[in-house]
Design a protein around this nucleic acid. Structure first.
Lengths: 346, 346
DNA sequence: ATAACTAATGCAAACAATTGCACAAAATCA
DNA sequence: TGATTTTGTGCAATTGTTTGCATTAGTTAT
């Protein structure tokens, strides 16, 4: 007797109104050939019965989903979690869900995930490629399957695809210029992994600024790290102190290494910013908590996510955007001057 | 002439092997009534043709998905991003995808999201309820729809559901005992929002320790904050200094407020840990970077996510687990003693 | 009034996989 | 040998929505 509490379907609405399922479907997708009057009748009934389309059946039939795959190396890194936050916020507003994966910088896993997203008909993919990724066939394949793609942060010249990046070169250049304007003449750079484009660009920006002011680039003042950890920063800073003369300014490729440099130099009696000015990169929470606060570059991670989602969804939805092959967006960064480099106050 | 490059289906495999689609389906789901020999034949062909099931069609027919909904207040908070990292890692291994939402602590949005997950047949839901959430009908509804649910971090007595939490009471109790053992007699507490259970528990643990050692709980040494921000911590610490006598130990409900207290006290010439010992909560990155490093409680966020995913998937898959109504898991926390409270070294 | 057209709706197929039931062949038993 | 059980496979219905094409009613033109 008891009918099993089943899902309300489009047919139930149709039956209740003596219309066909097709009409209901058309109302729900705003088909132009439906009269205003029936639209109203149907919409009212839909609300009354608390009906909503079965997204799975819908996807099954239309071969389209509302889910965006997001792949990043790790979620629990401040930068990525901010980007994802931006993506989620925009995507949600536009009616998309985001499905998240961590590649842990493994190429194998990355290809696995991409394959899976292709298989499950993702509406689009946003990815920050892993460190191991040198080949991009897996991503090119997405294009062939007509799945729009947006890269963020780490990108490659090799791959023609939409990208959202910050201008690392310019940001680093600006940071360096700032230190020079504070009077620094012997500048050091604590760099990130030079196999990664963005860290190469940061070095290049640093060099460019030196060049412009006819300051020398000194090998002994250049320290590359593998992962820009606090520990590595410490080692790098200690190594800097071993030189006969020490630098009077340090441009660091992130805030952890800047924090480490700050600590090491201070512990060695070098006044910051008077004897050595320091600037970091990324505007991590720590940078505004340390004493003195660390000058840095705000990398606009949240905005990056927002924009990535925005151009992806444009490519998904806007037919006119589909004629264009890909687009590149450069997000503004902001120089944040704080105590670790601001000598003017003296 | 050109056949449109279409997806390979179960029927293609069937045709190629002169079997029925049903058999292929059964092989792929490891149905017991299939002979080993045909299993092998089919599996080989599947590999050869690079076939994989269409997850959408599969979900459509079976009314089951492989996607887990995760709802948290915000992703870009260290704690949550670590939890999510743990969830993702375990879920991925088990073949599930996670779909992430931010409630931004809005009750309305939270119910919207839950409704949506119910509608899209999520395999299960993991949620940290928002601050506004006082009623739990939306979550109870999930149970009625047979969608397993796991809460983490913030929970409620009101709701009978599986939970993964840390023992905030005990952790805070241990932190307080630690300060007492360092010789503190006038203890202060910078607390989180007392409408939130976990912060209430932290206060309770603090009180319990005082009581046990017959130390007084002094109202003037109790400062509640709204969001435990660094700024609020600063105000609270400054307020503490306005008293005729100042505390010689501060138990803070997180590391930001602890960092703020550290700074304020130091700037006022109060030696840490000698004159006042400080302990935080959560083991944020900053706590190990400040000078002195801040003692804290590691909240095992990653492990929390891992376990949440584990018990959720158990409830999804394991029929035997479905007889039990719900389970509660308490994750171990760890007291991390660092410079801000360690007086023994003197 | 009839033809031609437009507007609004219905019909029915299609999508890819799953599953209860039926059935044939093989194995076991009497 | 015939009856019965077991094992392995196939048949065909089913799922909820979308969409090309057909159909009907209503409108306009001739």
């Amino acid at each position: 007797m008891k009918k099993k509490e089943a899902r309300i379907t489009i047919k139930d609405i149709a039956k209740a109104l003596n219309l066909s399922a097709a009409t209901i479907s058309r109302v729900l997708s705003n088909h132009p050939a439906i009269s205003e009057s029936t639209k109203k009748i149907v919409n009212d009934k839909v609300k009354e019965m608390g009906f909503s389309l079965d997204p799975i059946a819908s996807s099954f039939r239309s071969k389209k989903t509302k889910s965006i795959g997001v792949i990043c190396p790790r979620i629990d890194i401040d930068f990525h979690s901010k980007v994802i936050s931006g993506i989620e916020e925009y995507a949600y507003k536009k009616g998309y869900q985001i499905t998240i994966f961590q590649s842990h910088d493994s190429y194998i896993k990355e290809t696995e995930i991409v394959q899976m997203l292709e298989n499950s008909l993702a509406a689009g993919v946003i990815i920050c490629p892993g460190l191991e990724t040198k080949r991009y066939d897996h991503l090119k394949k997405l294009g062939k399957s007509n799945i729009p793609l947006v890269l963020y942060d780490r990108t490659s010249e090799q791959l023609k695809a939409s990208k959202v990046i910050i201008n690392d070169f310019e940001a680093s250049y600006n940071a360096t210029i700032h230190l020079i304007q504070q009077g620094c003449k012997n500048l050091a750079h604590i760099a990130g992994n030079q196999n990664v484009d963005i860290f190469k660009s940061r070095l290049a920006g640093f060099k460019k600024a030196l060049e412009q002011y006819k300051l020398p680039f000194q090998e002994r003042f250049f320290k590359e790290t593998k992962n820009l950890t606090y520990e590595e920063g410490k080692e790098a800073a200690e190594a800097l102190l071993l030189n006969a003369s020490i630098p009077d300014g340090i441009v660091c490729a992130n805030d952890y290494t800047a924090a480490a440099a700050l600590k090491v130099f201070r512990n060695n009696g070098i006044a910051i910013p008077e004897k050595a000015a320091i600037i970091g990169f990324s505007n991590y929470p720590i940078s505004s908590i340390l004493e003195p606060q660390i000058s840095t570059i705000d990398d606009s991670a949240y905005e990056m996510g927002l924009v990535a989602a925005k151009i992806l969804i444009q490519q998904i939805e806007d037919k006119e955007m589909q004629v264009l092959d890909y687009q590149e967006v450069i997000i503004k960064t902001k120089l944040i001057v704080r105590g670790s480099s601001d000598r003017k106050q003296n």
